[in-house]
Design a protein around this nucleic acid. Structure first.
Lengths: 125, 125
DNA sequence: CTGCATCCTTAATGATACTG
DNA sequence: CAGTATCATTAAGGATGCAG
């Protein structure tokens, strides 16, 4: 007998791969991965780079990313504490697609803004 | 005098491009764009393809995508109603990066699941 | 400095019923 | 069929204070 390879499909509501998609198709994840693209960074540095993110959200998102094997967390036993986060090999494979989304957002924002204006100016009826 | 080109940067909390990133770096957006990759589709078809999405969420997400110029909505004056959604030229440029995320989720789910097990099995202290 | 705990507010999502 | 409206629930996010 042969072992069957499960067919993962994000379009299926209960497929585990959807939980993974939910994590990576997320604005905070995208910005954090982009922020870590240049190499390891400390907690405070990431918080500064990803402007506007709260400590709580950064902390929990990093924990989720660590849990999914996308980043590593290295705590140095110093005082005051120093903690570094770094993309894993798996996390590195997310750099390209997530950076692409960031670039897309910047590159097409004028088109998007124009579309929004046009949509909002629509006649009500 | 010259007109200056604004520098859009998703890393800035108040940059409009971040609102655009928030829309596209989203699981529902990703799945809907993937669902529309094969061509125009009706509301009910999308709801079936993107299993588990509620009519309310699909409706509001499609409206947001239409507002941002990513999809078009065509309502035929028939009874019962028929409405078709289709990617715009702008929306087509999202197919590749968003499909990449879906593929990533399916392709790496086993690694991710293993990482989760490992993380959850950690000694508490 | 890096977080966690707590409290609070807002946004997202779900379920159901209903209309053109 | 394709929504909208409503109600209820859950999740996400922000602010502050505190501990190691």
């Amino acid at each position: 007998m042969e072992s069957t390879t499960p067919v993962w499909n994000v379009m299926l509501a209960t497929c585990p791969s959807r939980t993974s998609l939910a994590r990576i198709a997320n604005k905070w994840t995208a910005m954090i991965v982009i922020a870590l693209s240049d190499g390891p960074a400390r907690f405070g540095t990431i918080r500064d780079v990803v402007a506007g993110i709260s400590g709580k959200v950064l902390s929990s998102t990093l924990r989720d990313l660590e849990r999914d094997g996308i980043v590593t967390r290295t705590a140095y036993d110093e005082m005051p504490p120093r903690v570094e986060y770094e993309l894993t090999a798996l996390g590195q494979t997310l750099r390209e697609p997530l950076t692409a989304l960031g670039v897309w957002a910047e590159q097409h924002i004028e088109e998007v803004l124009a579309a929004r204006d046009s949509y909002d100016d629509r006649p009500v009826a």
